[in-house]
Design a protein around this nucleic acid. Structure first.
Length: 357
DNA sequence: AATTCGGGGGG
DNA sequence: CCCCCAGAATT
């Protein structure tokens, strides 16, 4: 299919169905940037409220650069992939300190921002600066691999290059922003992953996989490996109106967020060590621990976290800390901390936590 | 090239 | 259940 025809059919379709979203027809690179990062691996409906809240909290790159990482993470709480928030904050400081607060205006410069890869750089370049850069997201991979029956594995660099070459040729260089918006809207509303709406597709007559009834074979991806199981025992250590929180700094899930201190075990069984456990320099004896009748599971992309909750009530809160990222926090201040979603829900559900509020 | 980062929605 | 979502960084 010739690029000109593809562009015309796409444009014709887009006239009827353009998704009305706050970042569409926006050309402030800062706002485009925020929206693209929020929408990485995130559905529009999930990201929408965060987009609004983020721009209210950090209206421009200077405010974002002056804020603390904790404030940015707090705004990101519950959205997931928290490195996006840390990278946004890092890049804002980079723009203010190294680029005099001026947002970079070329693809090769935009992609130097942390957290901005090939997709986001092309999106910002086209939406904010009308540069002829074709975006490649999950939608575009699906649309192109189906119409042209691309059999290569799109999770490999070879497969992505094949799609990129096709997308570069298809791109309407007179109006890259509209083209990119349209092809993503099309993938999101017509060329659907499981059951594409081929009977109302403007490309049906030209779609090689539709013509051979092989739409569902594309895009090709190799099978993914099973989840890794992990077992966390979390301790709600209360003393009067204080509890312990752990600030996660290791290279693992939820870096930068706060959790209840926890111990990871090999399987669901938990054998209390003879020497007892240490939390914040305090030795916890087994008979101080109450098993809360509450467990949960948290499914991540590559892990299944089995969560077990325990409660420890201390007569008084020790002042000295072991220093392993533990903080003593008044129960009334819990809203100031960014937690993984499941923990915020646990805290909200555990009304006893708020008896001092 | 493979792995690891969350959380949610829909079939 | 399983898949995938306006992907990118790290190993």
């Amino acid at each position: 299919m010739l690029p000109k025809l593809f562009q015309e059919l796409l444009k014709e379709w887009h006239l009827q169905l353009e998704r009305a979203l706050p970042w569409v027809n926006e050309n402030d690179p800062y706002k485009i940037w925020i929206s693209e990062i929020i929408l990485q691996q995130t559905r529009v409906l999930q990201g929408l409220p965060y987009y609004t809240k983020f721009l209210e909290t950090f209206p421009d790159v200077f405010v974002l650069a002056k804020s603390s990482e904790s404030e940015v993470l707090k705004c990101w709480e519950g959205l997931g992939y928290y490195s996006r928030a840390r990278n946004l904050h890092w890049s804002a400081k980079y723009i203010v300190n190294e680029l005099n607060g001026v947002f970079p205006e070329r693809y090769e410069e935009i992609i130097k921002l942390k957290g901005v890869g090939p997709y986001a750089s092309a999106a910002i370049a086209s939406f904010a600066f009308s540069l002829p850069c074709a975006v490649l997201d999950g939608n575009v991979h699906r649309v192109i691999s189906r119409i042209f029956s691309v059999t290569a594995d799109i999770t490999t660099s070879k497969g992505r290059k094949i799609i990129q070459d096709i997308a570069d040729k298809l791109l309407d260089k007179e109006n890259p922003a509209c083209f990119n918006q349209a092809i993503m809207d099309f993938g999101a509303t017509v060329c659907l992953p499981a059951s594409p709406l081929c009977d109302q597709c403007v490309f049906a007559d030209h779609c090689t996989s539709y013509l051979t009834d092989t739409q569902r074979d594309f895009p090709f991806k190799k099978v993914k490996k099973p989840l890794r199981n992990r077992y966390f025992h979390l301790f709600l250590v209360k003393a009067g109106k204080y509890i312990f929180l752990s600030h996660r700094k290791e290279k693992d899930i939820w870096r930068g967020l706060y959790t209840l201190p926890f111990i990871e075990t090999r399987d669901e069984r938990w054998e209390f060590p003879l020497e007892g456990i240490q939390i914040g320099g305090i030795s916890i004896e087994e008979n101080q621990i109450q098993i809360l009748n509450y467990t949960d599971q948290q499914i991540l992309t590559h892990q299944r976290i089995h969560l077990f909750f325990h409660q420890v009530t201390l007569a008084r809160m020790e002042e000295k800390l072991a220093g392993d990222n533990l903080e003593i926090v008044p129960l009334t201040n819990l809203n100031d901390f960014a937690f993984p979603k499941f923990l915020r829900q646990f805290i909200v559900n555990n009304t006893a936590l708020f008896e001092y509020k």
